[in-house]
Amino acid sequence: MIEVNNIHKSFGDSHILKGISTSFEKGKTNLIIGQSGSGKTVFLKCLLGLFTPDEGTISYNGNIYDDLSASQQRNLRQEMGMVFQGSALFDSLTVEGNVMFPLEMFTKQSKSEMQDRVDTVLKRVNLIDAHHKFPSEISGGMQKRVAIARAIVMNPKYLFCDEPNSGLDPKTAILIDNLILEITKEYDITTVINTHDMNSVMEIGEKIIFLKNGHKEWEGTNKEIFKTDNAAVTDFVYSSELFKKVRQMYIEERN
């Protein structure tokens, strides 16, 4: 459970997050949607502790981040996994090296224990024959899987994904979405996902937050988002021709 209370964030003169409050529940996939530049990544980086909000608080399972000691903050960090917008795999390490990295850094496990864990998570994300390839030698979809594997290898309590399926074809995108959903349920993780993909919203949007110009414009579930009258939301949701048609049909059916 993550609770966000009225956070603000500015860079110089530009006010990016203008007072956002919300909460993210355990075992659920929480989506943050909004146009490019609306502050999704900045918001996510605040949740991760990469950016410190200028105002407001974020608490994890009831503990306010700013009130924790440095070592408690470090421990909390190790309970977080992050999948970056561009995967952010380490170029100099193989697939296996990337996934093993957090284990090597922070655990005292033996080589074979680490190897077992790496094999397990790579299998979990359906990657079985890419262990010794380098990130530049695998496809974007595979890179995303490796990034997910790296994010979950330490058994995180919180999983953050920044546009996990941007740049992927619709089919692979759905596979990745479902993988994240399954992992969230399986390990009972609090998952927060940035996206502007409406397929994801429909598939895995158990809770959705719509950001606009640094404000929380709307909040609800994927059942509710298609029925809302909030103009900004409908404008965003129905920006695709396909969805416009679907909505038209829905309205006709209702009348």
Partner: peptide
């Protein structure tokens, strides 16, 4: 630029 440094920082490195 590819956020690998952010990835290190997130892990607590």
């Amino acid at each position: 630029v590819t956020e690998q440094i952010d990835a290190l920082e997130v892990m607590g490195v």
